[in-house]
């Protein structure tokens, strides 16, 4: 038994490091990093188009869920909000990430779908729309704080109830 479980350690042929030059004219330095950050900044306009698409999909998924509140429709909402969560922060919309995260966590914690489930999801969807509609970048300041705290309180209450 001991022999069977004895791990075999293998050192891979490392062709990777030989290609990784340190320093030199093509090295990634702070300037390259700044260029990359600028490229992301330049994609913000595209992000705002993408996220509008996501919000439309999210609304459609929510409407489907209201019509038929099965697990499949709930999962669609989760997937879209998960994408929204994953993208927002990259483009400076950290509140989108935060609210998307709240929605994902709410869905994960939902064991039984009740009429309040749809209401909580609706609030999250509306909040996401508000963030983009009002262009609340970063943490959104006091308005962002109020939105997020309010959402969490509602979600907690609905999950408890």
């Amino acid at each position: 038994m001991a022999d069977e479980e004895k791990p075999k350690i293998i050192t891979p042929p490392n062709t990777l490091k030989s290609k990784v030059k340190t320093g030199g004219p093509g090295a990634v330095d702070e300037a390259a990093l700044e260029r990359a950050e600028a490229v992301i900044e330049g994609l913000t306009g595209s992000y705002l188009e993408w996220v509008q698409d996501d919000l439309k999909k999210l609304q459609a998924a929510f409407d489907q869920f209201v019509a038929d509140n099965n697990a499949e429709n709930l999962d669609k909402i989760f997937q879209i909000s998960h994408d929204i969560k994953g993208q927002g922060g990259s483009f400076g919309y950290k509140l989108m990430t935060a609210v998307g995260n709240e929605l994902c966590r709410f869905i994960e914690k939902t064991e039984t779908v009740t009429p309040q489930t749809a209401e909580a999801i609706r609030l999250h969807v509306e909040t996401l729309k508000i963030i983009i509609g009002r262009d609340l970048k970063g943490d959104g300041g006091k308005e962002g704080e109020a939105l997020l705290v309010g959402l969490q309180q509602v979600s907690d209450k609905l999950l408890e109830g």
Partner: peptide, 10 residues
């Protein structure tokens, strides 16, 4: 951050 050339990485 080390200055690393990752240009040739696939």
């Amino acid at each position: 951050m080390p200055e690393i050339d990752i240009k040739k990485q696939k």
